[in-house]
C-alpha cells in the first residue's frame, strides 16, 4: 500500500473495506483500549448475569424448567469464557480482568443489579434481558475485531433458546390463574425500563459512540438498537396479553415504528455508580465464589504437576 498513508489511515482504510482486524495486526492504541474495555465488560456481564438467575435454579417449579434454566445459566458461563478469551488476544491476562471486576474498576451491565423476586422474573429476564442482549449481539457479529466477532457468532447461536425459554415461562403463566398473570405483569413492570437502559445512554449523550462506529467496533448506535428492540417486543407483549409500563408507548404510523416515553437516566447512572438494589450483593457473591474456588485451582496445578512427574519417571524406568 501507498507509504504516504499513516498507520492510522491505513488501518481505517482496512476497516472501511470491511476487513476484519486480527490479534497480531497493527491497531491504534485507542482501538485496542476501547475493545479491551467493551469486550471485558461484556464478559463480566455474562458471568455476573448468572447470579440473579441461579437464585431460582433450586426453586424452579418443575424438573423441565429446572433443566432448561440450568442449561441457560451454564451457557452464560460459556459466553463469559469466549469473551474473556477474545479479550486476552488483545494483550491483557485473565487475572487482570478478574481483578478489575472484583475491585469495581471494570463495569458489567447494570441490569444484573436488580433482584429476581418471583419465578416470573426468570421468564421476564429470558424474554426482555436476553432479548435486548440478542439485539445488541446480532449487530456485533459484524464487529471489526475478528476474535470478538467470532465469539459473538457462537453466542448468538446459543442465545435464541434463552429468550424462548423465558417467553415460554411467561406464556404458560399467562394462561394460568389470575394470580399468576399478576406475577407476570409485576415482573414485566419492573424489568421493562432497565431492559431499555441496557442499550446505554441516548446517542447525543454517548460521546465515544461516534469513534466506535467509525472503527466498526459498534455497528448500530444505542438508540437504533433500542428502537429495534421496542419494535420487536411490543407485539410479543400483546400475544402474552400484558401491558408494558409506558403510557407514551404508541405506534407511529408515519415512522412505522413505536414511540416510547423518556428513560429515567438518573436511575441508570445511580445503578452504574454502584447504588442499585443488588450491586454489593452481586460483587460479594462473585468474589466469594472466586476465593472459595482457590483450592480447586491450586489442586489442579498440583495434580497436573504430579501427572507430569509420573510420566517422566515412567520414561526413566522404561
Amino acid at each position: 500500500m501507498d507509504s504516504t498513508y499513516s498507520m492510522e489511515e491505513r488501518f481505517q482504510l482496512r476497516i472501511d473495506k470491511e476487513e476484519k482486524i486480527e490479534a497480531r495486526d497493527w491497531m491504534p492504541d485507542a482501538y485496542r483500549k476501547t475493545l479491551i474495555r467493551q469486550v471485558s465488560q461484556h464478559a463480566h456481564s455474562e458471568i455476573v448475569g448468572m447470579l440473579p438467575e441461579s437464585n431460582w435454579i433450586t426453586r424452579a417449579p418443575s424438573i423441565k424448567r429446572k433443566l432448561a434454566l440450568l442449561a441457560k445459566v451454564q451457557d452464560e458461563g460459556g459466553h463469559g469464557l469466549y469473551l474473556y478469551s477474545a479479550t486476552e488476544t488483545l494483550g491483557i491476562n485473565r487475572d487482570e480482568l478478574i481483578e478489575q471486576l472484583h475491585t469495581g474498576k471494570a463495569k458489567y451491565s447494570s441490569i444484573f443489579n436488580y433482584p429476581t423476586l418471583s419465578w416470573a422474573d426468570i421468564g421476564a429476564i429470558g424474554w426482555l434481558v436476553d432479548g435486548a442482549a440478542i439485539m445488541n449481539q446480532v449487530a456485533l457479529c459484524r464487529t471489526s475485531y475478528g476474535p470478538y466477532a467470532r465469539a459473538m457468532v457462537r453466542i448468538c447461536k446459543e442465545e435464541s433458546f434463552h429468550q424462548r425459554q423465558g417467553y415460554d415461562i411467561l406464556l404458560t403463566m399467562c394462561k394460568g390463574s389470575e394470580a399468576q398473570k399478576e406475577m407476570v405483569q409485576d415482573a414485566v413492570n419492573r424489568w421493562w425500563w432497565p431492559s431499555l437502559m441496557m442499550f446505554g445512554p441516548n446517542d447525543d449523550a454517548s460521546p465515544n459512540s461516534a469513534q466506535s462506529l467509525k472503527w466498526k467496533i459498534k455497528r448500530l448506535s444505542n438508540d437504533e438498537l433500542r428502537q429495534r428492540f421496542v419494535d420487536a417486543t411490543v407485539p410479543q407483549a400483546e400475544i402474552l396479553g400484558i401491558s408494558l409500563p409506558d403510557p407514551l408507548l404508541k405506534y407511529n404510523e408515519k415512522r412505522g415504528q413505536y414511540d416510547f416515553g423518556p428513560i429515567d437516566w438518573d436511575e441508570f447512572f445511580q445503578v452504574v455508580a454502584g447504588n442499585g438494589p443488588c450491586n454489593k450483593e452481586r460483587l460479594a457473591a462473585r468474589v466469594k465464589a472466586h476465593e472459595e474456588g482457590a483450592w480447586v485451582r491450586e489442586a489442579s496445578v498440583a495434580y497436573a504437576e504430579k501427572q507430569k512427574n509420573r510420566l517422566l519417571s515412567d520414561v526413566a524406568v522404561a
Binding site: 469464557l81 469466549y82 478469551s85 467470532r150 457462537r154 485451582r297 489442579s300 495434580y303 497436573a304 501427572q307
Partner: peptide
Amino acid sequence: VGSLHAADAHM
C-alpha cells in the same frame, strides 16, 4: 474454535 486456560492438556 477458541481458547481456554487449563492446568494441563487433559483438563
